[in-house]
């Protein structure tokens, strides 16, 4: 009787100790992902806004096209420190700083350029005659865009989605300005880094890496296969 009791006792102590050891890392991870939960939203919205803008740029008015393209892509080159400061300054009076909505809007403007660039490249490589054929067979322009153009530029859409996701997931400095209590994974890891380089940081970093890599791989694989299936 006591044999099993002691075994049980030791076992439970051991598992408690193990939980004690693992808990901080798990909490760090879980916390960072709950914040990322919201942040999976900007990439999707950025994909819609960016794709619409890329099509508009590609097909739309010639007037101001070059200036507009430059303006729409410029957040890629602009130092994020400057943009982060500026957005913080504007969000502060309207109490948008340190809110998830604020993060979301700020991340959106960082993600959209990547979508515009990748989708724009796909649009330029696309065979226009297919779309013209659809239109000449009686499809309306929106219909041709939806049924012909969008499936054809699928690789560009997926590439844009991947880049937008990574940009948002990995964004540091803009969020750093905006955040005081709400955080994202990079900021969590960074603030624990300021004290000491702990092995748990490396572990969490490793996990983050695996998650990002797996997600990208999955997206690229699915997109690539779907893309070839459509073309073939």
């Amino acid at each position: 009787m006591s044999e099993t009791r002691i075994g049980l006792f030791v076992g439970s102590i051991a598992s408690l100790v193990m939980v004690f050891l693992v808990l901080p890392q798990v909490i760090l991870l879980v916390q960072s992902f709950t914040a990322e939960d919201y942040l999976s939203f900007p990439p999707r919205l950025a994909l819609v806004i960016g794709t619409a803008a890329a099509i508009g740029l590609d097909r739309g008015p010639m007037v101001l096209r070059k200036a507009m393209r430059t303006a729409l892509v410029s957040p890629m080159i602009l130092p994020h420190v400057v943009l982060g400061m500026a957005i913080y300054r504007v969000f502060l009076p309207i109490r948008f700083d340190d809110t998830v909505t604020g993060f979301l809007i700020a991340h959106l403007v960082l993600c959209v350029p990547y979508v515009i660039v990748t989708v724009g490249a796909s649009l330029q490589g696309m065979d226009r005659s297919l779309e013209q054929a659809a239109v000449s067979l009686g499809a309306s322009v929106p219909m041709a865009l939806w049924r012909v153009v969008l499936p054809l530029i699928r690789p560009g859409l997926i590439g844009g989605a991947v880049f937008a996701f990574i940009t948002s997931f990995d964004e540091f400095i803009v969020t750093y300005f905006l955040a005081s209590r709400q955080t994202t994974a990079p900021i969590q890891i960074f603030s624990s880094l300021s004290y000491q380089l702990e092995p748990s940081i490396a572990a969490v970093s490793g996990l983050t890496l695996v998650v990002t890599a797996a997600l990208c791989g999955l997206l690229i694989l699915r997109g690539g296969m779907a893309g070839t299936a459509r073309v073939a």
Binding site: I189, L193, L209, C216
Partner: peptide, 9 residues
């Protein structure tokens, strides 16, 4: 494609 922080760590 890797997180900035992860890379730096």
């Amino acid at each position: 494609l890797t997180s900035v922080i992860v890379r730096n760590v």
